[in-house]
C-alpha cells in the first residue's frame, strides 16, 4: 500500500509521507526510554540501576537487530522506505548503547577508572560489550551524508562493522547471564537469521553476477 501510494504520488507528497513516517518512528523509538524513566520515577524498580542497565542494553541490542532488518526487508519486498529509516534506527542503537555504557561508568562503577580498566581487561563479557560500543562509535560519527560522500566506497566497507558489533553485543548478553539463556538465545537466533539471509544473498550474487 505504502509503496504503491509513494510511487504514484508526486515527489513533494512522497517526501511528506517519508517525513511523517520518520517522525512516527523517531517518536516510537523513544517509548522504551520514556517507559523506563517512568518506572524508575514512580519507584516501581526495586533495583533502579540494574533495571536501567538491563533496559538500555536490551534496547541497544534490539535496535541493532531492527537496523539489520532494513536491507533484507527491502530485498524481500522491494520497498524503498526501510533503507530510508536505517540510519535513524542505527543511531538509536548507538543512543541506547551510550546510555547503557554511561550507566555502567557512572552508576555502576562510579567513574572509578582503575576499576573500569580492570573490569574491561578481566571480565570477558565487559570486554566484548565495551568493544562493541567502541566499534559502533565511528559508525555513528560517519553516518551523515557528508561522511558518505567523503568516504565513497569505503563507507560501505566501514559500515560492515555493524555485523561484528551485533555479534559482540549478543555475546556480551550471553556471557553475563547467570543461568537462564532463553533471552540471549532469542537474540542469537534473530541475528543468525539476519546474517544468514545476507550470506545466502551474497552466494546467489556470486553465482549469477548481475
Amino acid at each position: 500500500m505504502t509503496t504503491l501510494a509513494m510511487k504514484n504520488a508526486s515527489a513533494p507528497r512522497r517526501d511528506l509521507k517519508l517525513a511523517a513516517l520518520k517522525t512516527v518512528v523517531f517518536l516510537l523509538a523513544l517509548v522504551p526510554l520514556a517507559r523506563a524513566s517512568w518506572i524508575v520515577y514512580v519507584g516501581d524498580a526495586v533495583n533502579p540501576v540494574e533495571f536501567i542497565t538491563r533496559s538500555t542494553g536490551t534496547w541497544a541490542l534490539s535496535f541493532l537487530l531492527i537496523t539489520l532488518c532494513a536491507t533484507p526487508l527491502r530485498r524481500l519486498s522491494g520497498w524503498g522506505w526501510p533503507l530510508r529509516l536505517r540510519r535513524m534506527l542505527g543511531l538509536y542503537a548507538f543512543f541506547y548503547g551510550s546510555l547503557h555504557l554511561a550507566t555502567y561508568l557512572w552508576l555502576d562503577q562510579m567513574f572509578d577508572w582503575g576499576g573500569i580498566v580492570h573490569d574491561i581487561a578481566k571480565r570477558p563479557f565487559v570486554t566484548v560489550g565495551f568493544a562493541a560500543m567502541l566499534l559502533m562509535t565511528p559508525l555513528a560519527i560517519t553516518s551523515t551524508q557528508g561522511w558518505m560522500r567523503r568516504l565513497k566506497r569505503h563507507w560501505g566497507q566501514l559500515h560492515k562493522l555493524v555485523y561484528l558489533v551485533a555479534l559482540l553485543g549478543v555475546l556480551h548478553y550471553w556471557w553475563l547471564v547467570k543461568r537462564d539463556l532463553t533471552q540471549p538465545a532469542m537474540f542469537a537466533l534473530a541475528l543468525a537469521l539476519l546474517l544468514g539471509m545476507r550470506l545466502m544473498h551474497w552466494r546467489q550474487n556470486r553465482r549469477t553476477p548481475t
Binding site: P48, V49, R123, F125
Partner: peptide, 16 residues
Amino acid sequence: PRWSQASERRIGELFK
C-alpha cells in the same frame, strides 16, 4: 569468575 564480589548495591541505595 565472571564478576567482582568486592562491592554490592544495597537495595534502596544509588551507589555501591
